[in-house]
Design a protein around this nucleic acid. Structure first.
Lengths: 275, 275
DNA sequence: CAGTAATGCGTATGCCTTACGCAGTACCTG
DNA sequence: CAGGTACTGCGTAAGGCATACGCATTACTG
């Protein structure tokens, strides 16, 4: 299990891609991604580029999952030796961050007809969801640190911007952004799990849920008195055959969330009740 | 990165702990955890037990993180050989599931003074959060399949029970449960990340956030016009020194969520708008 | 034309999971 | 009580993984 410890951005590689801590406190590869850092004009011209490495990494991840992305694998795909990559990236986790940022990309331009904070957030959430759905492997990369990559910050900017004229104070805005961002990620992850379970064996999506229903049924049947609510749920059949599409389900949750935010905004809840 | 593909419960180990698919479709070890499955009275008495293995696994995870939990490590701790464990568990991921279930434990009894669906859900969410906070390593185990372990189902039962007299239809109840469960997990994960970043280097929690603030500042300063909302946020200082405790922050999000659910319940939104 | 810094990469270490198969054990049947 | 047999623990080994270290090579700078 790689990259499990959070915050493990780099452990100071002795190689060529260590830390700078000059200004940003970011690892060298990320500073390169931000476009700070000119190529030193001394040694031989690099035969590779961060960009190429990241692109290949994404290709492997998209085709075979993040688990297939190893330094060796990426190197082989590029026709270079494994260790070459460490001249560009100081650790595998750093490669992950770069892959993530590249795949996420910049937020698309917001349509002109989106008006008001609620519509803005809705749009923001849906756009983010689309990104995840296009790159399911993204969801398998554990979050290791607060967003500091170029595109992440652009998305963050957009989210905050949507809340600009709500009157919420800044702390609240972050909370709301994280609340909704977390929801989107969570929902997408669940869908990705279902999808994975589906393709792992050759099952239709309904079949997966029906099996799960049967499992829960078999487990709770011996002692129904202990699981009244679950038994009720099973009897309704809602578990095995949800009568909503994933999209509607998503919109439901999002609506719920935004209703909650609306209560906050409406109440003039800008002021932070300090605990 | 182990256990990354979802649904990868077992790949049919050739050893002793394969699948049954008799009734539940669960791997053998989980059926043992459910108390189905009597020990076959044939061979030598097992020198180990699932329980002991799982307990040791939890011990290692609690002390050194999930990353330190390897089959070899657990075996060494038990004074047996690595391969012995595979008589009890068909794959490492299965061990994870069992560790998770054991650590989560059954939901505590609900206090008598908790009344109404809203208070019930609040209690449920807080109780779950406490479990995560007591076992931060839990959050590093990727969710690989819908909950089917004994304690997971008990928690699910409790959540559903809290919604019993809301009039919501069963599909909606699942949605709400997943919405809140997801929120709790997400919030706990963020806290765990912060905690990990904190202990990784010897920093105070505020220091971590202050550094992040400085990073974002350094990154957005060169082109402020591109990040108006972020610059505004930075100017407010809310990023580096949030004036709320994590607990208040959590309650804020939960309140938001429940406000949203309340809108749904109040509107008599039991009927599912089929897409 | 030196000096120098950065490059690619070979080698090696120490992890990890897990397939396979053997030898021993304890119960059940006759 | 003898023998079959299912089940146990575990030795061996294969194949992956990230990455530390150091060397030869390259191309720019003075």
């Amino acid at each position: 299990m790689a990259g499990e410890m959070a915050g493990g951005m780099a452990s100071d590689g002795g190689g060529g891609a260590g830390r700078t801590d000059g200004e940003t406190g970011l690892p060298a590869s990320l500073e390169t991604a931000w476009g700070l850092r000119a190529r030193p004009s001394k040694g031989p011209r690099p035969g590779l580029s961060l960009d190429r490495i990241v692109r290949v990494g994404i290709g492997v991840a998209a085709a075979e999952g993040v688990g297939a992305v190893s330094m060796g694998r990426v190197a082989k795909e590029l026709g270079v030796s494994t260790m070459s990559l460490y001249r560009y990236v100081s650790a595998k986790d750093e490669l992950y961050v770069l892959m993530e940022d590249a795949a996420v990309g910049p937020p698309p331009p917001m349509p002109a007809d989106v008006d008001g904070w609620r519509a803005g957030l809705e749009w923001w959430a849906r756009a983010q969801r689309e990104v995840f759905h296009r790159n399911l492997w993204l969801l398998r990369i554990p979050i290791s640190s607060p967003p500091a990559s170029p595109h992440s910050l652009q998305w963050m900017e957009r989210g905050l911007a949507a809340l600009a004229d709500t009157g919420l104070d800044e702390g609240r805005k972050i909370s709301v952004i994280m609340l909704i961002g977390g929801y989107v990620r969570n929902e997408a992850t669940l869908m990705a799990d279902l999808h994975a379970a589906m393709t792992a064996r050759g099952l239709a999506p309904d079949e997966v849920m029906r099996r799960y229903e049967r499992t829960v049924d078999a487990l709770t049947a011996p002692d129904p008195g202990r699981y009244p609510a679950l038994r009720h749920l099973l009897a309704s059949g809602a578990l095995g055959a949800p009568d909503e599409s994933p999209d509607t389900e998503f919109e439901f949750g999002l609506g719920c969330l935004l209703d909650g935010v609306e209560v906050l905004v409406g109440s003039g809840g800008g002021a932070t009740r300090t605990a």
